[in-house]
């Protein structure tokens, strides 16, 4: 059963108040107020001195569990919200792999599910690992990287909805590890909300929370568990209001959702799940046997709703 072995997160130290982004993003005072007061987004992390490669490398070098086990890493999956982040053939993923001594691993990017790509990467990594032959004591590992720069307007904010933070994460996955075992994965895609799909943004707004509620239901059912059994929900950090309304819709107490990073860091692309996991571990919010749910929504052009249930 796919399991998370270790997670590290890197966020640039430089904090940027939402207000200071208004000029560059052409936001009105009212729009800034909406982000801060209604959505609970107060600041993000941005550092123009750090390249994408820097972000990924910092996250991976912070993963102490990787040290000495590099030779067991067979796959490196880079889960990314934005499909293209460097001009061809520049390849930050392979640059980082070489720098980390992971040139022997098969490295590729999983994308086009927007910010839900991270959950697909965990699922794919688990399947690849399960099929990988190995000697006893040399169980193969996969490294899942996330990390993005807010390099263009589309990667800086989602109008009326969220603001992106720069940051990165590194996650070590095994096929049969004892900790944080993956019990279920549910994913639903709504390509009709793509630019060529023909559906209106208004309909997307109406269907957003019910669609997320539906994949959460599916993930819970596949895991043989219920909302009431969950110790914690690790959300995507889109904004506070979405989660307040979703909790009301599905009958989940708001204090069961780890929301503090929304205010502190905003939406860190695909890294939200890992940043929130790290916070949960650092604050001792998960005890052995606790079940928790990770949710993600990729809402670029087209939409992907995803949820996973884990047992700690």
């Amino acid at each position: 059963m796919t399991a998370i072995d270790a997670v590290s997160v890197f966020l640039p130290r430089r904090r940027v108040p939402i207000e200071s982004l208004a000029g560059a993003l052409r936001l009105s005072e009212m729009q800034v107020r909406l982000f801060r007061r209604f959505h609970g987004l107060t600041e993000v992390r941005r550092d123009p001195e750090l390249s994408l490669t820097d972000l990924l490398r910092h996250a991976a070098t912070g993963l102490t569990a990787l040290r000495g086990r590099e030779h067991r890493v067979r796959f490196v999956l880079y889960a990314r919200a934005f499909p293209v982040v460097a001009p061809y053939p520049v390849n930050p993923l392979h640059d980082v792999c070489r720098a980390l001594g992971l040139g022997h691993a098969l490295a590729f990017t999983v994308t086009q599910q927007s910010c839900a790509s991270a959950l697909t990467a965990i699922d794919v990594a688990g399947r690849l690992l399960a099929a990988e032959p190995h000697r006893p004591g040399h169980e193969p590992l996969a490294l899942i990287l996330t990390g993005e720069k807010a390099f263009t307007r589309d990667a800086q904010f989602i109008p009326e909805t969220s603001v992106f933070s720069e940051g990165a994460s590194a996650c070590l996955v095994s096929a049969h590890g004892p900790r944080d075992r993956l019990l279920s994965y549910a994913c639903a895609q709504r390509g009709e909300f793509d630019v060529a799909g023909g559906e209106s943004p208004a309909r997307f707004q109406r269907e957003y929370r019910p669609a997320l509620a539906a994949v959460i239901d599916r993930a819970l059912a596949e895991a043989g568990t219920t909302l009431a059994d969950l110790r914690l929900v690790l959300p995507h950090n889109v904004n506070l209001m979405t989660w307040k309304r979703l909790c009301k819709l599905i009958g989940l107490p708001l204090d069961r959702v780890l929301l503090e990073n929304i205010t502190e860091t905003g939406h860190v692309f695909c890294a939200d799940a890992f940043a929130n996991y790290r916070t949960a571990r650092d604050r001792d919010l998960l005890a052995p046997g606790d079940r928790y749910l990770v949710a993600a929504v990729g809402a670029g052009d087209g939409a992907t709703f995803a949820a996973m249930v884990f047992e700690h």
Binding site: V84, Q112, D301
Partner: peptide, 30 residues
């Protein structure tokens, strides 16, 4: 090589036009 609409979640759209609405994603940088 990327296409000319590089920010688009094309695979999610293709799920919509494919019978079965499959789970879809793109694989690149390799």
């Amino acid at each position: 090589v990327h296409d000319m609409l590089p920010g688009r979640a094309t695979a999610a759209y293709l799920s919509h036009v494919c019978p079965g609405t499959p789970m879809s994603f793109a694989l690149c940088d390799q």
